[in-house]
Design a protein around this nucleic acid. Sequence first.
RNA 1: GGAGGGGUACCCAAGCGGCCAACGGGGGCAGACUGUAAAUCUGCUGGCUUAUGCCUUCGUAGGUUCGAAUCCUACCCCCUCCA
Length: 413
Amino acid sequence: MIEFKSDFLRTLTERGYIHQQTDAAALDHQACSGIVTAYIGFDATADSLHVGSLVQIMLLRRLQQAGHRPIVLMGGGTTKVGDPSGRDETRQLLTDEQINANIAGIREIFGHFLRFDDSPTGAVMVNNDDWLSSLKYIPFLRDIGRHFSINRMLTMDSVKLRLEREQPLTFLEFNYMILQGYDFVELNKRYGCTLQMGGSDQWGNILQGVDLGRRVREQALFGLTSPLITTSSGAKMGKTASGAVWLSGKRLPAYDYWQHWRNTEDADVGRFLRMFTDLPMPEIARLERLQGAEINEAKKILATETTGLCHGEGVARAAIDTAAKAFSGATAQGLPSVLLASGTQLPVIDAVVALGMAASKGEARRLIDQGGVKLNDKPVQSATAVVSAVDLDEQGTARLAVGKKRHGLIKRA
RNA sequence: GGAGGGGUACCCAAGCGGCCAACGGGGGCAGACUGUAAAUCUGCUGGCUUAUGCCUUCGUAGGUUCGAAUCCUACCCCCUCCA
């Protein structure tokens, strides 16, 4: 690894964001001598992104922190065509309204991580629908398509894997790398963008764009990918039983987001602190050295920092407070709750389901049978147990827990 | 267009007339051990009820049968080879 001169590449290197890149020395030189404009593309298939995209978001944040300009490219055009990956069924095609609503939701998230304004380093969000939808097929083939070699495309990992596994690959999908390459050239034309970043799975597509730029614009473009983030035990990050770990508070409450980071594996703490927080490196080095149970302190800091970035500092502080109470047996406001009408009884099973801690009553019964449900820290013995006024404390609240980590409240109506 | 193979629960994958709510693995959840960690061990993993009953589910729609994921017919989708 060469020693970089630019703040941008030095930061990326020491924080572990770089998996592969094209001409590193030339990019380093460019980053030293002026503002670099770089982009990353995102799908517009949902109204929120999840932690799987967080590395990319942080890459753009680091770029801006280092005095350069980030472009968030929304794949409105490509989303409109419908992403053909996932072979079981063609995805539901999204309408223009849905796509625009999704873009609006995603813009809100980026607002927490990037500064959008008209300054030279202000972030910009653009939609590739602006140029892709108006493309004319024959002129496009003649101007752009002639620069792509099928021979080369067939050797691309994304294509090769599909073919080797005998999984279907449609012509539409085969065109994706061409469209993505074209996006890069278009952004270069419009914004002077010279760098595309992305996950390691995008390497092939990015290279196509770099090549295309050289051929049609005679421009030196750069590509840089981040490593695929898995946990130390090999699981892909961001998947939980209840679904994806969304960045939008509307999709996933901030407290749950905090918990997700709090439960990081020991071996991942340092890596995640470097990538997902702004904490200075010496501080991270100190936290990373903590041993045994002490590393829990580092996990709390990780959770609070990441939650602060995504949801705001106040929300993060509230989350740490809620967690402290919930896990010490105190009553923590801010947890999900259900109401108990006075003079009535509520079966524990129903309460567990109502709090979203079990998907069905049957599951709630099983949890109780296995000793996984606690009311006010006492294991619930019977599946027919009920919550009534006697279980409530002076504040009219009872605590219900499933497992060690999931907490909820029952309150007097 | 022709020939062959295939579509089973979150994923992979058995089953090929009743013993099938469906083997096994992965994943997930819970319990034990711990530190809200990892590893390990144990249990659970369609719904409703609670007892052992009902309902829904093996691509879709029909049919045969006392009885079908399993047999038949049509249709849809996927893969391979040939054109």
